[in-house]
Amino acid sequence: MADLPKYRGVRPHGNRIQINYSVGGEHTFETIDLRPNKTNLDAARKIRQQRIDDAKQGTVAPDSKSFAELAQLYLESLDVALSTAMSYHGILEKYWMPSLARRDIAEIRYSDLLALVNKIDWPSGKTRKNALIPLRGVFELAVADNLRPDNPAVRFKQVKHQKPEIDPFTADEWLAIYEKLADPWKPYFTLLWETGMRHPAEPMALTWDDFKGDRLRVNKAIVRRRLKEVKNYRAREVLLTGAAQSVLRNHPGRFTGGPTFPNTKGRHQLDGDQPNKAWREALKASGVRPRRAYNLRHSWASRALTAGLKPAFVAQQLGHSLKMTLEVYGKYITSDEDKSQIALLEAAVKNEKLARDLPREV
């Protein structure tokens, strides 16, 4: 027996091995039916650690809190839009709660989180990036409450992800889809094609009071079935093309008041189910390659910039920052000046050649 290894909480007990441990103030002794040799003592050491880990899953020290408790406090303390708070709640429930909910917040290590992050089959780098935001927030709150000294979630490096290319509709594609749209939905989607508003949130929130003849006031949106301020709080006035003005002036519900595109009860539509159904049916009937109706927004922006409209004006119409507009739609910004740049280069090359051909002075 003298040559056997010694491990904390593990000792020979006759012809068997006894382990003992304490979690949450409760001390436990357990006898394992293994002969006390070197191999079995090492196995008992691992069993003891597993018992401790299992016990901690359901036991939190009196002076600490579980991950679930801190997550709830974090969500309640958020000063963000309702849609953002609901998104964070969904992320915590889907990715973090199943493994961490009952764990003592003070006992969760970076290695625990790393193993969990590596085990999850992330749909995309963007999803992983977004999922880490509320995770960091929960641990940041634990640090602020002196429940632990550090935030292990800040050690994760952000995985860069490439934004998908925008995929606008061409004018011919739009005409083909328009012809197959059910008549009640033609004004709705025409307005999206002519203005680039965000489908379905912004047009569903419009009322007839927002129509000012040559422009629309866009200052609210339907998000998660609730009427709220427009995205990024960027209320704006959208100047209307002649086609867009005609659609609204000739709309059968113009003088009824209330929502511009109401549901069957005359109230705001609270989700995009109906217009999306109409859109999918028109796409299928037209034979146009399937894309979201939201891509009509990209279609407007790409057409506007290709036509030479100023990026600042396009940004205002879209409710974007100029920086965002340039990042997303920069490749569509063209002008006659752009074309002249190649001409300048070709002229310079020609002048260099002429200079070489001139006779040298003696």
Rank of each mutant, 00 (worst) to 15 (best):
F211P: 02
F169T: 03
K231T: 10
E237W: 00
T207A: 08
L191N: 07
K160S: 14
L227K: 14
K231V: 11
R226C: 04
I222C: 04
E202Q: 08
I177V: 15
I222F: 12
P168T: 02
P203F: 11
P200I: 00
Q158M: 10
K160Y: 01
V223F: 00
I166G: 02
R234D: 13
K186R: 15
Y178T: 00
V230I: 14
D209G: 12
K160W: 00
Y188A: 10
E165S: 07
A243S: 12
N219Q: 14
Y233F: 07
V218M: 09
E179V: 08
E202V: 06
R225F: 04
P184C: 09
R198P: 13
R215Q: 15
F169H: 02
K180Y: 02
G196R: 04
E229K: 12
P184S: 05
L227D: 08
E229I: 04
Q245K: 10
V159T: 15
P200Q: 10
D183F: 07
K157I: 03
R217T: 13
D167P: 05
L239M: 11
T195M: 08
L240I: 11
E202L: 09
E179K: 15
A153L: 05
R225T: 12
W185I: 08
V218L: 11
G213R: 07
E202C: 09
F169C: 05
M197Y: 07
R198W: 09
L181G: 01
G213S: 06
V230M: 06
G196K: 03
W193K: 10
T190N: 06
D172P: 00
K231Q: 03
G213D: 08
Y178D: 10
V238G: 01
H199V: 06
K212I: 04
L227A: 05
F156T: 05
P168L: 01
P184L: 07
